[in-house]
Design a protein around this nucleic acid. Sequence first.
DNA 1: TCCGTGGCGGCGT
DNA 2: GACGCCGCCACGG
Length: 98
Amino acid sequence: MGSGFFEQVYSIVEDIPEGRVASYSQIARILEQPRNARVVGWAMRQSPPEKEFPAHRVVKQNGDTAPGFLEQRTLLENERVAFDHKGRVRMEDYQWER
DNA sequence: TCCGTGGCGGCGT
DNA sequence: GACGCCGCCACGG
């Protein structure tokens, strides 16, 4: 538990329960840095292995999964998170409320 | 110290 | 809606 931005991001993401998702900008807002969504995304890229860290529960604000991370969708579906016909998470139903 | 690099998002077309 | 631009900023080399 350091004081770096990444560490703070990780501690928030670890609190997202199974079957819920949060957006990059949501995490940034929680850390009181609403313009830092992109850095949150970068933090996910550097994050610990899926096995011990739920990086897959972080999606875009509109429910899209980031390009090039197809496996993320499967992991979420395994937690019973449903996607719409455009391949987006229905945020109204699954967004985590902290 | 400076600089390139992003798993975004908001706005205009 | 769907694109395309571009501002944002922590990190590591």
